[in-house]
Design a protein around this nucleic acid. Sequence first.
DNA 1: CCTTGATCTGAAGTTAACTTGAGAAGTTAC
DNA 2: GTAACTTCTCAAGTTAACTTCAGATCAAGG
Lengths: 147, 147
Amino acid sequence: MRDNGLTIGDLAARTGLAVSAIRFYETHGIVQPVRNAGGHRRYGRADIRRLSFAMIAQRLGFPLAEIAGHLARFPAHKALTAQDWAEISRGFRGQIEARIAELERLRDKLDGCIGCGCLSLERCALYNPDDRAAARGPGPRHVIDAD
Amino acid sequence: MRDNGLTIGDLAARTGLAVSAIRFYETHGIVQPVRNAGGHRRYGRADIRRLSFAMIAQRLGFPLAEIAGHLARFPAHKALTAQDWAEISRGFRGQIEARIAELERLRDKLDGCIGCGCLSLERCALYNPDDRAAARGPGPRHVIDAD
DNA sequence: CCTTGATCTGAAGTTAACTTGAGAAGTTAC
DNA sequence: GTAACTTCTCAAGTTAACTTCAGATCAAGG
């Protein structure tokens, strides 16, 4: 008997996510299922929306931590409204535009450098030490996705 | 006595890379220094160019493996010519343009979706399972990347 | 009731691109 | 010649985003 609510398997089938991924997202606070008598997770409809949102945001290139941050602003079991979505989306748009702009700058510099062949660290516009300094700390550097 | 050639420290100072990074790049075949009597690495001028190239390519967002692949086409101790550089660069340009185009598509879809708020997996243009395969980034994406 | 099949937990593995640390040995400046 | 660097090797740690595995328990159909 389904008690009430969806099982993690149901959710996986509906969203296309792996069961393990959904559990992982839970550790990041993206969903917060309740437990039934046997200790199994039970989800509500709002959770489908939350996961859908997370998947879309990931497609847009945003890290889970940031996505979780956005979702944290809304009650765990309340569904996201069109309002909420529009509000978050506008922020996304700005960041996408920024990434496009950065790539265009790089492309233009590259155009200027093709044929030059200097590869000089002092003179090549493509090599800008300041930009590299921005990426600090250990771990993998997300080269281009800066910010 | 410097025997001949640059030490790894010299190279680090010249390129701005960490000594550990240069050793790491060596494991990827990006540089192939010779050893002096004491077992220390000695580099040639061509190696500065190879590292510069790698750094620039990384800024452009290319993974080390791919960069190493490009460099593998050239003799380890021959310097890259303007010709070589121009040839490789043209390929880069194409890939940068592709990434820009992908982001623009996403931006446009997002515009269409702001205000819609449906977040429906079946209908939302932003959620396209096929496109997920294109996602770049860190982490084991093999499930998604599944050929 | 019993057998599949789904879930549970917690630990460890995966990729990328490096860094950090330990202990030993080479190199250099005075 | 010796103190002070620099470098050497190899193993293990780091972040992100998950997956895989093992051993155990829960749930549901016949």
